[in-house]
Structures are given as structure tokens and as C-alpha cells.
Write a protein that binds this DNA or RNA. Sequence first.
DNA 1: CGTTCTTACGTGTGTCGTAACGATC
DNA 2: GATCGTTACGACACACGTAAGAACG
Lengths: 296, 296
Amino acid sequence: MNLRQLRSLVGLADTDFSVSRAAARLNIVQPAVSQHLRQLEELIGAELFLRHGKRLVGLTEVGEQVLGYARRTLAEAENILAVGRDQTEAERGILRIGVTHTQARYVLPPVVRKFTRQYPDVELQLHQGTPAQLVDMAVNDKVDFAICTEALDEHPALTTIPCYRWNRCVIAPPEHPLLLRRPMTLDKLCEYPIITYVFGFTGGGRFRDAFGKLGLRPKVVLSAADTDVIKTYVREGMGIGIVARLAYSEAEDADLEMRDLSHLFPWEVTKIAYNKDKYLRTFQKNFIDAFQALSV
Amino acid sequence: MNLRQLRSLVGLADTDFSVSRAAARLNIVQPAVSQHLRQLEELIGAELFLRHGKRLVGLTEVGEQVLGYARRTLAEAENILAVGRDQTEAERGILRIGVTHTQARYVLPPVVRKFTRQYPDVELQLHQGTPAQLVDMAVNDKVDFAICTEALDEHPALTTIPCYRWNRCVIAPPEHPLLLRRPMTLDKLCEYPIITYVFGFTGGGRFRDAFGKLGLRPKVVLSAADTDVIKTYVREGMGIGIVARLAYSEAEDADLEMRDLSHLFPWEVTKIAYNKDKYLRTFQKNFIDAFQALSV
DNA sequence: CGTTCTTACGTGTGTCGTAACGATC
DNA sequence: GATCGTTACGACACACGTAAGAACG
């Protein structure tokens, strides 16, 4: 058995079982991949693939098992190579971060600025997704880290580091009647149409829970995955926006009024998570440190 | 990078850093191993080994890291091969079990008998050790399972399955005065010299705890790792023996009297444990099932 | 002086690429 | 008929084994 053979298997599974595309991705020719797959089947002594004629269309049960172990084998081997790169080209490489829109737009910029200055030769990739997708990407090593508030600490394969706390604020056009009413309470918020994050994003169920505990039903007229969309509709007068406090910028959002709501909602904790089995390169650790430093 | 290179590295670490012995174990010649090690160092781009002249004597910090990942890579690769063997020679192979003496001597025989009848071509290896050693052997894949009462469920890398409950009994020569006294209580036991298991074996700290809770101090005059040794000294009149109830056999131990003590001590649970990351071959699963069936 | 590792070199295995063939949509 | 996978073959590389040399105890 060979690492190459395993790469062909994983490549095949990652390209919808197209031998040719797998070969292209692996920078070898199709017959080589075919050979690897044949050798693996021979080694295992059982059919690994479901076929339509010559075309491979899926994996048998045994094939699934082998694929799983192959992925893990390659992941561990990749760790060894990462140790190597950390020795020979410590300041060069790729850092793949999975983030939600709000993080990428409002939180990450200063960290990214600092990091790229420190590591000009590291290519920084920002992959966006829903928290659930980010977890998946981190687990399957499509990204090196995932950064978000939801879902991260539930997955057993991830190491999760809490980074900073945040809470919500309400934003509204300056003339909005809500702004005159003090103190701000949950039931007053319920009197107006609300625009906030979609469920599963940025604060998740705890937003509704806060109202539910008091028997209140907020009128959410629109929900969006990112803060910029919410702001847009608030500007249009469609309702008041309830967003992360850190997403309100005095400079950019001078045309909107903001009131802090941290006394009304539970605090949220944004975390950074990565695969437990993964070797972290020095610059990756440094990124985590830089991100954590936000909480200070 | 290559699996062979990794095997050479692991082989080296497992043979006290003797290149020649590593080669012998891997069934290749020394120069091949040397080459593998050199290639690895080249790949990583850093010294992996501590040297005295030409002789390798240990690992650098980087070397330790690489060794760790190499072990894991090979373990995952081994899982793939195990899937293969399960397909091509399902009823043939080796089953390595780590056990304590008492388990091997008194509990395992019927299971082993049943298993070897079912799988005549599986070589069964019984490795003995202390519970702590058994955990180590299971974690590092020196054995496929570990069976014992202590220490197993504490290690995060192991999957632990409880198999059966047992408790203790006292054994003594027929004429021993203790045997006349009923009901049996802990303080009566304390009146006589006691022979029982050494700490860390078979029942562990809970034995002393039972006495300690009542402020009693048992007079343990001798402790041994296995029941046969204890019985021997009981026969010599050196004291009463407190052993696992299941280790008393009416047939073999007719010259000793036995009294059940399950009302005096907490119940113990014997477990079987194996590495979480390990693929279990069919016959290995069957052994576990057969062992678990004891509890019925 | 034996043991241990390294270096050098030859041979055989194996892996990839090219090219031609077969099958499927 | 175009795409996709398999088969066949050749060239190159690589890995192991043999043999000789260098360092260490």
C-alpha cells in the first residue's frame, strides 16, 4: 500500500467519482489513478466501488470504511509535511480561515492587517459559510480554523478556544420613535418590526429565548445572514435592526442611531476552533494568539 | 514521503535507536533504514536525531513531533490493511489480548475455548501485565484489547466496555477460627493477618477504602499480583486470603474454605478496552461479544 | 577488533506517461 | 461522436541489496 494510492482514492471521492478529474487534481494522468484504485481493490480483496459499467459512481460499504481510514492516514501524513514546512519555510504558506460574514467584515480586519504585516508571504484565504458549514470545513480540513459563535464547541473532533464576548445593539434611523424611549426593554422592542440575523447565525437561538422567557413574541419581519444586509433594510425604514454591537461603526453608520442592548440579552462568545488531530504551524498559532488578543 | 520511511523511523524509536536492529525487525538491510532516516531529515529540513558521532541516541524536539505523527499515520494505514485482511482471510490472523493474571487464569478459559473452536486459524496471544501496563499496551497497539478491572476507563484514547460484575470472598484453611464466626463483618476480618492483591491490581483502592470508612486498619501481611500466589500462602497458614469470588473453585480448592464477602465490599466491574482509532476485525468483535456474554 | 553506521554502486521493481482500444451517454 | 475509463507498453526513477569504507567503544 501507498500514500499515492490513498490520495487517488480520496481524490476520487472528492470529485464525484470522476477518475479523470481526480487525476487532474492530483497532477497525474488518468491511467495512473485507475491503476491505484485497482491496486487498492486488489489489496483489500473486495469491491470498493459501485459501478455503472466502467464508470465509478460510489463506494461499497467496505469502500466507505477504507476511505475513512485513508483520509485519516493522509491527514496524519500531512501533519508530518506541515512540521517540515514549518522548518524549511516557516514564514511561507497558506492560512485558510472559515468565518461568518460578520466576523470577516467587522472583527477580522485589524487581525488580518496585523497578521499580513507580520507574514507577508503567507497567503490568507477567507472562506465564508454558515456556522454548520464552518464546522464541517474545519473537521474535514477544508480550512485550518473556523471562527464563529455557534456550533463550534459541540463537535468532539474540534479544539475550541473562546476568544471574546460580545452583545447586541439596536440600530434605527435617527427619527425613529423607539430611540426616545428609555430605558430600553424587550417589550418595547416588540412594538416595532425587527430585522436581525437568521436562525443558526451569530447568536442563534438565544436571541429568541430572551423574548420567550418573558412570554414576548418579537415581530421579525426580515432576517439575513449578514449585518450589512440588515443595515440596508433598516436604512430603508423597514424596521429596527438588532445586530452585534461590534458591527456598528460610528464612522460608517453615522446615519443610524445605536443603543446598546447588553442588559437585555445574554452575552455571546466567539470562538476559534480547529481539528484536534491537526498540527498547527507556527504562523497558525500566531494567528490564534492575535485573534485572542482582541478580548483584551 | 513514504510509509516505509515512517516505518523505519518508528522501528528505530522502538529499538532503542539501533539502526541495525530496526532494519532486522523491518526485514530490510541497514543501509536502507539509514537512507529512509536521511530522507526524512531532508524532507523535514531539520535534525530529527540526537547523535553521538554517527550513532543515533535519541530524538530532537522536532523528531519527537514527527515520530508521533508517524505512529498515527502508520496506525491508520494499518487499519486499512486490517479491513483487507478481514475480506481476504476473515478467519485467520492474530488476536493479542492484554490481561491480568487473575483474568487469564480464572475468567478467560471458557471464552478462549469457545473462541479457538470457532476460529482455529486465529493465533491467540495472551500478554500479561499490570493494569497500568495493559492500558499502555492497548493505547500503543501492542495488544488489540486490554481486559481488567482498573484504570481502563480513565484513558481518553480507549473505548471501554463493561463486561461483568464480581466481588470478593475470603478463603482460609478449614480449621481456621474465622470460619466459625457469623455473620462475617469487616472488623472480624481485621483480627487476622490478611493476604490479598497488591495495590493497583484487581479491585485496587476500593478494598482498603471499605475498611477505612469504618476506621478499620486491615493487617495485610502479604500482597501478591495473582490469586494462585495468595492461595499458596493461605494454605501455608500465613493468613486468610481475600480474593475474587470467581477465583475460588470448589474442585481445585477443596482444601480451602470459602465465605462470600459481597455484602462487605463494593462490586467491581471488569471491562474490556481497545484503542478508539482502531479498526476491529470481525473475529475481534466476536471475541468481545463472547467475553461480554459472561455477564449473562 | 568488533560493532555500528555511512557511502557507493548495481540490479530489479514499480510507477508514471503515452498511445491505442472499448464502452457509455 | 465525444467523453470517460481500461489495457498495453516503454522509459525513467527509485528502493533495496551487496560490498567496501569510516568512526566509535
